[in-house]
Structure formats: structure tokens, C-alpha cells
Simulated assay, not measured.
Amino acid sequence: MDNTHKSEELSSVLLSTMLRMQHFPDNVGLATDLLLHLESGMVESRDEYIVVRTVDAPEYFFGNMLVLRQRPSPSDLKRLEHNFAQLVGTPPLIAHRTFAWPESDDSVVTLDDFVEQGYEATVYRVLVAHPGDIRPVATNPFVKVRPFAAQQEWDDWSRMQLADMPDPSDITSQRYIRHQQMVYRRLIERGLGNWWGAFLDDEQVGSLGLFFLDGIGRFQSVTTAARHRNRNVCRTLVTEVIRLTAGRSDRLVMVADEAYHAGAIYQAMGFQLQGRLASLCQEPQKVTARS
């Protein structure tokens, strides 16, 4: 058995296992996250956690984390931080802490106590659609969509990703982006999907990834350049990529931060809410010695 078939078999086993676990609800957003992590790092079930580690990218906050069965309570924090240190790592190599877990569509998520302890809290919508459910939306006829084919396109992608970060010149951020590019290109080389660009007069104004894992199409990092927003670039990009990949999957998944407007755009296109994810991330400068 070659490495590609072996990896695909492991991916299928992981997905089936986690969806069968009594304490883990059927959350296709989390499932596809773990499948992607499995392709680029290590994913293992350890007692009450799923442990995600990316050894060659210790600064990848969501590639080195503990996935919990359910939302933690503030009284759990000291134990969680101790277990994170034991199972994921400690400074100076692992200089952050990240926890993630599934949420239902209608739960009220209150994480203020964790925010007071220096954590950033985020809740995401898990949005699912069958390709045939996608509704026509306003698009930009001047935007051309095609898969990346040259190094320059990846270089432009890197600059666009870094521009959305607090400090694009930070060496840690730059290492993270280089790692992500390497992972995505490796997935593309193995025939698992593509990275697609949106272009106006040959200028890259947006991009996204779409990868097919265990029969599910999972979108990654839908981005529009800041000065080209509100010009239907995102709608055009998503619509065209779905059209151009027709037949590869009967289920498409988006995970979108519910504090931003992008989720509403995807729902207007025909994606439906099927659960949520939540996370806590304490960045390196805020990690204390509590563990």
C-alpha cells in the first residue's frame, strides 16, 4: 500500500471513530479540521481529549491544541493548562495554549471568565451545503477564478495572508505562513484539492483552498484583499470554485467566525448551519506559569 492510500485509510478511520464516540457529537466542521491536521501533523485520542500536534510548526496555535469533549467551565482551567503542558508542550517550544470543542447551533456561549485570564475566545459557525443547493448570487463578471499555477501566485498569497495579521514582519507569523503554504502544496500534489485565486486584470484579489477528505469538500481560508472588499469577490470565488469542482463531493463545509459577516454571505448562498465550534487561545506573551 502506498503512502497516499495509507493516509486516506487512516483519515477515514479517524473520521469514523470520532463520529462514533458517544461523548463527541457529529460535528463535520471539527471532523474535517482533524482530517486536515492528520494530513500535516499528529492527531491522537488520549482519554478525555483529542491531541493535535504539528511538530515542525510549534508556533501554529491551532495545529498544537487540545480538543475537548464539551465546553469547559472556569474551574477546569488549571487542570486543562496542566494537561496541555503534558500532552502538547511548554515554553519555549510551545509558547501558547489552545483548546477547542463542539457547540450546538443554539447554545449560549459565555467565555468571559477565560477572557479575563488572557484567552481569546472565538465561536465559529459550521456551514454545510450540497453543491446543488447553492443559490445564484450577485457576482463580479470581471473576476477570473483559476487554480494557482506559479510561485508568484503563492508569493502574493503569502503577502495577503500576512497583511491580515497584527504584525506582518513578525518572524513567527512568517514561519507559520511558510508552513501553511508547504502543507497546502503537499495536499495539492497528492491530488486532494487545489488553491484557487480570484484575479482582476491579473492581480490576485482573493483566494481560497478546497480539499476533499473522506468524501467531504472542506473550504480553507477564504480571503479577499482589503482594498477589493465589497466588490463581490468572495461570492464570485466561492461560486466558481463550486462549479469548477462539481462531482468531487456531495457535501461542502465552511467554518466561519460568527463575529464576522462572511457566514451570512455563505448562508445566503445556500449553506446551512449544522453546529458550531468554539475555541480559547492564549497567545505566547500571555502564557503564565499556572501550569
Score class of each variant (00 low, 15 high):
Ser12Asn: 11
Leu15Met: 07
Met21Gly: 05
Gln22His: 14
Asn27Ile: 11
Ala31Arg: 05
Leu35Arg: 02
Leu35Ser: 03
Leu36Thr: 05
Gly41Arg: 08
Val43Asn: 05
Tyr49Cys: 02
Thr54Ser: 09
Asp56Asn: 13
Glu59Asp: 14
Tyr60Val: 02
Arg71Asp: 04
Leu77Tyr: 10
Ile94Trp: 08
His96Thr: 05
Trp101Lys: 14
Glu103Ile: 01
Val108Ser: 12
Asp112Trp: 03
Gln117Ala: 04
Pro131Lys: 03
Asp133Arg: 13
Val137Pro: 00
Pro141Asn: 11
Phe142Gln: 15
Arg146His: 13
Phe148Asn: 02
Asp156Met: 13
Trp157Gly: 09
Met160Asp: 14
Asp164Gly: 14
Ser169His: 09
Asp170Asn: 15
Tyr176Pro: 00
Arg178Glu: 15
Gln181Ser: 12
Arg186His: 11
Leu192Met: 13
Gly193Phe: 10
Glu203Gly: 05
Gly209Pro: 03
Gly215Pro: 12
Ile216Asp: 01
Phe219Ile: 07
Val222Cys: 08
Arg229Phe: 12
Arg235Lys: 14
Leu244Gln: 14
Val253Leu: 06
Ala256Asp: 07
Ala256Cys: 13
Ala259Lys: 15
Ile265Phe: 05
Ile265Leu: 08
Gln267Gly: 08
Gly275Pro: 11
Arg276Met: 06
Pro284Ala: 04
Lys286Trp: 10
Lys286Gln: 11
Thr288Lys: 02
Ser291Cys: 01
Ser291Leu: 04
